[in-house]
Design a protein around this nucleic acid. Structure first.
Lengths: 219, 219
DNA sequence: GGTCGTTTGTGAAATCCTTCACATAACGTA
DNA sequence: TACGTTATGTGAAGGATTTCACAAACGACC
């Protein structure tokens, strides 16, 4: 295989490891802004709510980025992790669903800052199509498949009601999208090779509810 | 201990198990609406994207709710899971941060439907305080601690900028809150017994970015 | 250059989670 | 009542992730 990278040698990287890496970058960037030069697995763990061993294991999945006895260079480590996560580039994102959540996402400038560029917005509601959210025009979802191909969209953010999810997922997958961020409360079915990540606020609240019901019969 | 429930006998329940339970309820409720009477671990697994064995294991953590040879009663199983998750009641929730994400959450009626009642909204911005979002008046965050006690708030949804998170967390914990849903991109520190769940859109996108960077050198 | 204190990187152990496989219970039928 | 069919509940096996513990590497200091 000619295109191998250091870390695609058939190793399974756990979801939680990726989440932690993502967190480490954010911490490191904060420290970069503060002008800190070096850090240690200990410090990163402390700040990220995990353990030093965990930090080192996470990093060791992809290489060795520190100096024994000294720790890590804040800037270099951030660069390495960004490159591991594929953040050295801009991703072209389409938002489908210009409802409450959708428009809130649009306004959130954190996305573009971190390399996720929302290039188009779609909705099925004729009342919304043609209107504006932010500086973008809402397009008719009928043109979604073509639009995805034309704009080279790689990631779709889905903020549509539950019923609409599966058809749209099928469509965007057909159009070549292989990454979907789904806000609807049910898991769409996708073929091998397509990644879906679900963000489900109600589930999170229910997990809180469980935790609170657990400890203490309370008031 | 007088107040024992079937499942608080010092058993650790994994996060993913809880998430799956949450998903099962949603599926079961859909089937309840469709008028289905019974189901099986097989069907639930199929619909929920997991395996029959997993479904049975998840349920067996809390009891046995089915009939061998027959399966589960849709309604009864839904009831059981709701009770496990502590959803048989209404939770009093305060929203802190009336920005984009905060207000989007407010309008999302799924919360109240599922027993999460947003009883108050707070913000630090003087320009927002006194104003209305939906039918609620935004209060000054200065009165947060007192408000939490007065209103009996049990869960706080935090949609504030990163810097503001830790001070507010400290404050709401002091006021007696033990469940926090945090939208800011960093993990606040909390004492034992307080549960924080993080929802982090950027992290999810970064996980997608990683997945897409992984397979195939692609176009 | 040798010694000391430090912190990484990593096999091995421990823990946690999922899958397997099957005994068990329930119902229908005769 | 006995038998066949079905699908649960659960120990045990298998995998995955986290923690442990320590050798190896580095700089500082004498």
């Amino acid at each position: 295989m000619a295109f191998e990278r250091a870390f695609d040698v058939a190793k399974k990287i756990s979801d939680s490891a990726i989440h932690r890496l993502s967190l480490y970058v954010r911490i490191l960037e904060e420290w970069e802004r503060e002008g800190r030069d070096t850090t240690s697995s200990e410090e990163l763990a402390e700040r990220g709510g995990t353990t030093a061993a965990q930090v080192r294991k996470d990093l060791s999945l992809f290489g060795s980025f520190g100096k024994r006895g000294l720790g890590y260079s804040v800037g270099e480590l951030a660069d390495h992790i960004r490159s591991i996560l594929g953040l050295g580039r801009t991703w072209r994102v389409a938002l489908v669903g210009a409802g409450r959540i959708g428009t809130a996402l649009l306004e959130y400038r954190g996305f573009r800052e971190r390399g996720f560029d929302i290039v188009a917005v779609y909705d099925a509601d004729p009342a919304k199509v043609g209107g504006c959210v932010g500086e973008r025009t809402v397009r008719d979802v009928a043109g979604l498949e073509e639009g995805i191909r034309a704009e080279g969209v790689e990631i779709v953010v889905l903020a549509v009601p539950g019923e609409a999810v599966q058809p749209i997922v099928d469509l965007v997958v057909r159009a070549g999208v292989r990454g979907i961020l789904n806000f609807a409360p049910l898991k769409p079915r996708v073929p091998e090779g397509v990644t879906v990540r679900d963000v489900n606020l109600v589930m999170e609240l229910e997990a809180l509810s469980f935790a609170l019901s657990q400890d203490g019969p309370d008031a």
